[in-house]
Computed example of a mutant assay.
Amino acid sequence: MNRPNVLFAARPDRWDETRGPLEAALAEAGVAADLATDHAPDTVDYIVYAPNGPLQDFSPFTRCKAVLNLWAGVEDVVDNPTLTMPLARMVDPGLTEGMVEYVTAHVLRHHLNIDADITRKPGDWTPVTPPLARDRKVTVLGLGALGSACARALAGLNFDVAGWSRSPKDLPGITCFHGDEGLADALARSHICVALLPLTPATEDLLDADRLARLPEGAVVINPGRGALVVEDALLAALDEGRVSHATMDVFRTEPLSKEHPFWHHPRVTVTPHIASVSRPESCAKVIAENIRRGEAGEPFLHLVDRQAGY
């Protein structure tokens, strides 16, 4: 087996924390590779990539077999006309576990109205009994790897869970909707709506004023998916009118979120700084290493992006 050259082309500040885990994962996979940040382009066999890194022109990488994305999202690179080699997105157990923990925590927070107890004043002994999970309808928009895992976890807590996807899906214990008509039905039954769709031309601005108006009065929106899934002005208007009671937002159209942005200052918006599902070097390195092993063995790559679908 040849010794492939692997170029690390994410942000330079990620190199030190990623290098050790990636070298260890490659060794565990039985791949002897030269991992560096400065390989000459025409000698590179694989590119370990993040869209916020310095590399934008892939045309000099004439022998590159695959670009291996460190992120689950590929919307910032999938339409790059110079990227003609296979592109793999990150599907990693660590990403999935992180997302499940985030979504479960915030669904439970809103389900139990924990904020009211955190801000309770001394002497305020006004018990409010929440419904049981089986009486709380949660809808997950997006039933890919992350959305399906979150839907199953919430169903395991006995929530009444539905999911929506563009194409038909079948998940045991989950009421599945699809297509435009299915989206209207899914939103109409959502006491808590979790947005976990990839960002594509078909999903951008999905939660606009009309669709937000389909949610039940007082619904909660949780968006750990992609910032551009939600029309921000429409969400703020729905919050001001009380149609949406709270929005927990982890992703935004522009990041970091400007300190002047209305989300920071709205009393019914929680901002978290894109922490729901983060590529952790120890777990994502194993996915990268396995794809390099596959490429060297002539086996199909995992998690290849469908350029037409956009993810």
Rank of each mutant, 00 (worst) to 15 (best):
M1D: 13
N2V: 02
R3F: 03
N5K: 06
L7D: 01
R19W: 03
G20T: 07
L22H: 10
G30W: 04
V31D: 03
D38P: 07
D38F: 06
A40P: 05
D42S: 07
T43C: 15
T43R: 15
V44I: 03
I47M: 05
I47L: 07
V48D: 05
Y49D: 08
N52G: 08
N52P: 06
Q56N: 08
F58D: 02
P60T: 04
K65R: 13
L70V: 14
A72S: 14
E75Q: 12
T82C: 12
L83E: 01
L83F: 03
T84N: 15
M85P: 11
L87T: 13
R89H: 12
V91Y: 08
D92R: 05
G94V: 11
M99H: 03
V103M: 09
A105S: 12
H106V: 15
R109A: 10
L112V: 14
I118T: 00
I118V: 01
T119W: 10
D124S: 00
W125K: 09
T126G: 11
P127M: 09
A133T: 04
A133C: 08
D135G: 12
V138Y: 09
T139K: 04
T139A: 07
G142N: 05
L143M: 06
A145W: 04
A145H: 13
A149F: 04
A149W: 06
L154C: 04
G156R: 00
G163D: 09
W164E: 02
P168H: 03
D170K: 01
H178E: 15
G179K: 12
D180F: 00
E181L: 12
G182L: 04
A186T: 12
L187R: 14
A195G: 01
L197N: 02
P201R: 14
P201S: 13
T203P: 12
D205L: 02
D208L: 04
R211T: 11
R214W: 01
L215Q: 08
P216L: 11
P216Y: 07
N223V: 07
N223C: 10
P224V: 05
V230H: 00
V230G: 00
L235W: 06
L236V: 06
G242F: 10
G242Y: 13
R243D: 09
S245C: 08
F252K: 04
T254F: 05
K259V: 14
H261E: 14
F263A: 10
W264D: 12
W264N: 11
V269H: 08
V269R: 10
V271M: 02
S277N: 10
S279N: 14
R280Y: 06
C284R: 05
A289F: 02
E296V: 02
H303N: 15
L304Q: 15
Q308F: 03
Y311K: 10
